[in-house]
Structures are given as structure tokens and as C-alpha cells.
């Protein structure tokens, strides 16, 4: 199956990945090959098979709903490029 240029650009947008127009043809080619390859799955008869949700068929454990994390905002924000007064800064969203 050959993906179109538009499809690849739309996927990149959904994933919020900036790719230049010069890069698009190589993604069209590579992603088409990958999708072609995974389409082999169609050959397999999976009628009545339950999709696997967990490798060991285990359920998620529950814990008490109590706070276990302490406030480490200042430590975590050391890795941010733009912070002010404990807030993360982004370009203006509301004019």
C-alpha cells in the first residue's frame, strides 16, 4: 500500500512532528514499506481470538488513594527551558 504525501503530512500533524517538505518523500517511501510489511497480519485467521491486553494476563493492582509524592516542583523545573514563578512558560495562547 502506498501512502500519499497528504496522508504522511496529516499523520505528522496529528503527531505534532515538524517535518520539512524535503523530508516528506522519504517518509512516504519508508512508511509505505512499513505499512505494507505489517499488512501480512491480514493473512492470519484471528476469528474469535481475544486481543491481548497484558503479556501475563494480569489485572492492574489498586492502592490506597493517599498522596505518596512530595512536592519537588523546583527540582523538576530545573530541566525546563522557560519557567517563571513556578510556572512553565509557552508562547502566548490567548490574545
Amino acid at each position: 500500500m502506498k501512502l500519499t504525501r497528504d496522508e504522511v503530512e496529516s499523520i505528522a500533524h496529528l503527531a505534532r512532528l515538524g517535518i520539512s517538505s524535503a523530508e516528506v518523500p522519504s517518509y512516504v517511501d519508508n512508511l509505505s514499506r512499513i505499512i505494507d510489511f505489517v499488512q501480512q497480519l491480514e493473512q492470519s485467521d484471528t476469528e474469535g481470538v481475544t486481543p491481548m491486553a497484558h503479556p501475563l494476563e494480569m489485572t492492574q493492582p489498586l492502592r490506597e488513594d493517599v498522596v505518596t509524592e512530595k512536592d519537588q516542583r523546583a527540582l523538576y523545573q530545573e530541566n525546563a527551558k522557560a519557567v517563571d514563578a513556578g510556572l512553565y512558560l509557552v508562547p502566548r495562547v490567548i490574545e
Binding site: 501512502l3 505528522a12 512532528l17 517518509y27 512508511l31 505489517v38 497480519l41 492470519s44 484471528t46 481470538v49
Partner: peptide, 30 residues
């Protein structure tokens, strides 16, 4: 990394989820 993010976005996107992701999870069970 970008290829894989885009592949994943494609197989999870509206209209393709059953054909790819759910199918793969069934094959995984087999």
C-alpha cells in the same frame, strides 16, 4: 524515532484501529 511515532499514529488513527492495532493484539495472543 519519527518514523515509529508516525507509524504508531497511523495505526491508531480513526478508521485504522481495528485493522491494525486490534488485529496485532489478536495475533499477539496467538
Amino acid at each position: 524515532v519519527k518514523r515509529r511515532i508516525m507509524t504508531g499514529t497511523y495505526v491508531l488513527s480513526a478508521g485504522y484501529y481495528d485493522a491494525y492495532y486490534l488485529k496485532a493484539q489478536r495475533v499477539r495472543q496467538l
